[in-house]
Design a protein around this nucleic acid. Structure first.
Length: 753
DNA sequence: AAGTTGACTTAGGACATAAAAT
DNA sequence: ATTTTATGTCCTAAGTCAACTT
């Protein structure tokens, strides 16, 4: 059963990959971290002074003598220089005819009145048809401004035609392609945005109406008998301090509370909400005892769980009511689901990994913090009684409905639409089309960066090696992050010398690069992979005379890289490589692993394996479920029992058969037959269990959902389902089907990524 | 050019619910 | 019917990338 690991089947050249759960990671960093901090700081200083020096004008480097990493500013300087000298190489084909197009603009007339959830009468139309190759050129680019409007209008016309033709090819499930149909199965009102026109000028909507956010309820003070306890003394806290204390109490089961930074940040912020007396008294978190509070909440949860069926139903109904009232908006006459219609509740900030801000107080969001975005002529959402919005604006170049500033990072938070919405779907579609476009020119781009490994310009060489990693290993771009504001994680461009180790030879392979760093969400990336000699030598050079904390690619930033990519292909950025490589890998793996004579369950297992190959490539990990071992064991036990059952059944079947042979009466014939059937049935069950075990084991620390939701062109899966007779429900659950409705509707089994 | 910020995608874990086992 | 386990949803942090500011 759980015998085979997927690795054999599925792993491609990326070399070994080990997963480490979150915990491991922590450990992993533990020792180096503290020092790191210091170092990085020093580094900063160093950079600063270096900068001065440098500015005195040398253009050194380029020649490998780079000695230190230059600070960002510095970096840029150098970069700049380089810029003029070169630039040429890539230029070659930069310009493919840009455009493309499809899409036209929509003219929804503001149509006054109530937008009520009426389903539009589609005006059909065209649009980029995803499947055929022509699509690739379809870049739905947004034509800039009204200045261009006329042009685009003209253009549009032509485009229309072009685009239109591909259309007929499709849908064969009884619907006629242009959307007019819907006779049968489709619930008349599913809105197919993909059959509508699109905006091409950056406009996101013409009309937008919604009810605003749902706020977290006001704080309700604890009952009087529940008290906080300081240094053995029970005391009632002032409401402000008490509320913050409850946030802590609710997190006590978590290991966040054992971390110093968390405790320090929490205590610091907590004090701000204390009265003078409290502040004077409560000086040490170690002397604080929140257990009573914690127990109170525990009891509450418990009580809630024990509620009667009717009462539970009541809260359920209430939630449903809120959803109906606030969970939808009307955008361009369509009723669309909102993803997050509630503001985030107050609490203690939980960053991932070693986040310097963990434990800080996240403030309650109030109407005064919220900016509302809706159309001018719609019914604006009303702030709660006595309150005001911070602002109401009418910006139809953005898709959000409400925004506020987060007090921890100072960044913006938004309320946006659900992934089944038109605005999200269009972007998704565009994303995959861009990736398919890359497919068409990836050879050229690869040839180019390989060529650039030889460039005599350091910047070009670094850029080429970085791009190679992004392509081959599916690394993220790696933007520069502000030090001290976030956990120390990196992506490709921000890799530091300490994150890789070069091995002239490792495990029999020449020129091996070993990566070990923390990426997004502090997920560890570990991989040892053989590279070409030229890459290896370049890396050695990039590392020369640098400290471990220095940037590996000191002449490259995501900006530089993306600008370069943009020249190679319109719309190309670093992340397109992940999308492309993920999708193409799925397609290949499916091709390789699926056999049409297998049964559906087996096919699904193979699908999951293909999916897993992608997840491994993209390093999508998860903590192994806490109950993993236990559940694996019970499953194993089940399998064992089933096995026994099987042998018993077989024995019986054999006997019955023999008996029947002896006396060929109808009765014996029947028993023999039914015994035989029992065997088959049990065999099937056993096989199913085995599959389950295998799948689960292989999935222990791998998260499939991220790639499935974000990186894999759904049309590949849809086509696979169709050609192998696997119901789509086996692959996508309801919300995934909603999210991918357009792809499910459009792709046929011929689809090729 | 460098730094900043806004908007949007990608991400894993927590939590709720459904389904299966007992 | 109750408990356990699997699955799906929610939540919001953490990225990417380009436009804007300085």
């Amino acid at each position: 059963m759980s015998g085979h690991r997927s690795n054999g089947a599925v792993q491609f050249e990326c070399g070994s990959w080990e997963n480490h759960s979150y915990k491991d990671k922590e450990k992993h960093r533990e020792h180096k971290k503290p020092r790191d901090h210091k170092k990085r700081k020093e580094r900063k200083e160093r950079e600063k002074s270096a900068k001065h020096k440098d500015s005195s004008g040398k253009k050194h480097r380029d020649k490998d003598k780079i000695k230190h990493r230059h600070g960002s500013k510095d970096k840029h300087k150098h970069r700049e220089k380089k810029r003029d000298d070169k630039e040429k190489p890539e230029g070659l084909d930069k310009e493919k005819p840009k455009g493309l197009l499809l899409v036209k603009e929509v003219k929804y007339e503001p149509d006054s009145d109530t937008h009520h959830l009426t389903v539009p009468k589609h005006k059909h139309t065209l649009k980029m048809e995803g499947n055929d190759d022509n699509s690739s050129d379809s870049k739905l680019k947004k034509i800039k401004t009204e200045r261009d409007e006329k042009i685009s209008r003209k253009r549009k016309q032509d485009d229309c035609k072009e685009v239109v033709k591909p259309k007929k090819a499709k849908d064969q499930n009884g619907e006629d392609s242009d959307g007019k149909k819907k006779a049968t199965k489709e619930p008349e009102d599913t809105y197919k945005w993909w059959k509508e026109k699109r905006y091409t000028d950056g406009t996101k909507w013409t009309t937008l109406e919604h009810k605003g956010p749902v706020f977290d309820p006001e704080y309700e003070p604890l009952p009087n008998h529940v008290k906080f306890c300081y240094n053995g003394e029970r005391m009632k806290l002032s409401p402000g301090a008490e509320e913050v204390a409850t946030f802590y109490a609710k997190l006590m089961h978590h290991d966040y509370v054992t971390k110093d930074i968390f405790r320090k940040n929490f205590f610091n912020d907590w004090q701000k909400d204390m009265t003078e007396e409290e502040k004077a008294k409560i000086k040490d978190l170690a002397k604080c005892d929140f257990r009573e509070i914690r127990d109170y909440f525990k009891a509450q949860t418990e009580a809630r769980r024990a509620l009667s069926r009717e009462e539970k139903q009541k809260t359920k109904d209430e939630n449903e009511r809120l959803l109906q009232e606030y969970g939808f908006c009307i955008m361009d006459k369509q009723k669309e689901r909102i993803a997050n219609f509630r503001t985030e509740p107050p609490g203690l900030f939980r960053g991932r990994g070693d986040h310097p801000k963990m434990g800080m107080l996240k403030l309650r969001i109030k109407p005064e913090d919220c900016t509302i975005n809706c159309s001018k002529d719609s019914k604006w959402p009303k702030p709660p009684p006595g309150k005001e919005w911070k602002e109401v604006r009418h910006d139809n170049k953005v898709t959000w409905l409400v925004s506020w500033a987060d007090n921890i990072k100072g960044s913006m938070k938004y309320i946006m639409l659900n992934s089944s919405s038109r605005v999200k779907g269009e972007k998704d579609w565009e994303k995959f089309e861009t990736a398919r476009k890359l497919k068409k020119c990836v050879d050229r781009i690869r040839a180019q960066y390989r060529d650039d490994w030889k460039s005599n310009e350091m910047k070009v060489r670094q850029r080429a090696v970085a791009l190679y990693f992004i392509d081959k290993l599916a690394l993220r771009a790696g933007n520069e992050k502000e030090e001290g504001e976030t956990a120390d994680t990196v992506g490709c461009c921000s890799l530091r010398v300490e994150h890789i180790t070069l091995h002239q030879e490792k495990d029999g392979e020449p020129y091996v690069v070993e990566f070990d760093f923390l990426g997004k969400d502090c997920i560890r990336y570990y991989n040892a992979i053989p590279v070409e000699k030229r890459v290896f030598k370049n890396l050695r050079r990039f590392m020369e005379n640098k400290q471990p904390q220095d940037d590996l690619f000191d002449r490259v930033t995501t900006d530089i890289l993306n600008k370069h990519l943009q020249e190679l292909m319109e719309g190309l950025t670093a992340k397109v490589f992940r999308t492309y490589n993920a999708s193409i890998t799925l397609q290949q793996q499916l091709k390789e692993l699926t056999k049409s004579r297998d049964n559906v369950d087996t096919k699904v297992l193979q699908y999951n394996r293909a999916n897993r190959a992608v997840a491994i490539l993209c390093n999508h990990q998860r903590a192994a479920p806490k109950t993993f071992e236990a559940s694996m064991q019970t499953l194993q036990a089940k399998i064992d029992t089933k096995r026994e059952q099987l042998s018993v059944a077989k024995r019986e079947a054999k006997r019955a058969k023999a008996e029947y042979k002896e006396k060929t009466t109808e009765k014996f014939r029947r028993t023999a037959e039914s015994k035989k059937k029992a065997v088959l049935r049990i065999e099937e069950q056993l096989m199913k269990l085995d599959l389950q075990a295998t799948d689960r084991e292989e999935n222990k620390q791998i998260a499939l959902s991220t790639s499935k939701l974000n990186y894999l062109d759904p049309r590949i899966s849809v086509a696979w389902c169709k050609s192998f007779d696997v119901p789509i429900e086996k692959i996508y659950n309801k919300s995934q089907r909603d999210k991918f409705a357009c792809f499910i509707d459009m792709a046929d089994e011929e689809f090729e990524f």
